[in-house]
Design a binder for these strands. Structure first.
Lengths: 109, 109
DNA sequence: ATGATTTATCGTAATATTACGATGTTAAAT
DNA sequence: ATTTAACATCGTAATATTACGATAAATCAT
């Protein structure tokens, strides 16, 4: 028990759920908003900005990178993170495809 | 440790993360798609359709209800579930507001 | 070379999630 | 009044997530 039964769902359902899961944490939302707001690729500032430990921020960045929504570029001794515009748009498009499935017919309620 | 530090984030960030979290499970995606696909408010069928235990489905339905995206109406001895059109649209709008923040300027990457 | 800075990774404690059997609860059917 | 059907809830085992200190790795400054 306790293990999500991915094998009984479609690839699409698993993929969409995974995208939602990566975004399902306020720190990761905050990280994305901060990167966007700075119009630049900040990195260590996030630790000071958010008040979470460096290890924690690094872990969140790793998860965001795992779906490609951000990219990290090494610049000297620091790493510059930025949004991957294409992935960002693709995720938005996928969410909208899901939400546009909606039909206006309800047999009850 | 292990507890999300909600107090250090904005209400908006916490709310958005919560919405993503509720949708971050393939069973809940599948439930929503099934309800939409049937253009009706099914209930116990989900147990047979998805192959998860009745208690498990009931728990997922409870979570979906918690953000109002579905509604349950008692009809005799069964409960008919359907999408709440307004909440559905509101969530889609909130996601799009988030995704439309994107700026095209990247100082690195 | 040494020390400082920045980030990643490891290990782990605290907490949350997922799944399900067992057990209630309610309403229709007999 | 029983029985049956459909759900919800409780309790709990298995697993996942979150957070952080400690430590490693890489690079810059001295």
């Amino acid at each position: 028990m306790g293990l999500t039964k991915s094998e009984i769902f479609t690839e699409e359902q698993n993929r969409l759920a995974l995208l939602f899961k990566i975004l399902a944490h306020p720190a990761r939302i905050a990280i994305l908003q901060y990167i966007i707001g700075q119009k630049a690729c900040i990195c260590n500032d996030l630790v000071e900005e958010l008040g979470l430990a460096q290890a924690t921020i690094s872990q969140h960045l790793k998860e965001l990178k795992s779906i490609g929504i951000i990219q990290g570029t090494i610049e000297g001794k620091s790493v510059c993170y930025c949004i991957d515009e294409n992935v960002w748009k693709k995720i938005q498009a996928d969410f909208n495809i899901f939400f546009n499935q909606e039909v206006k017919v309800n047999k009850c309620c």
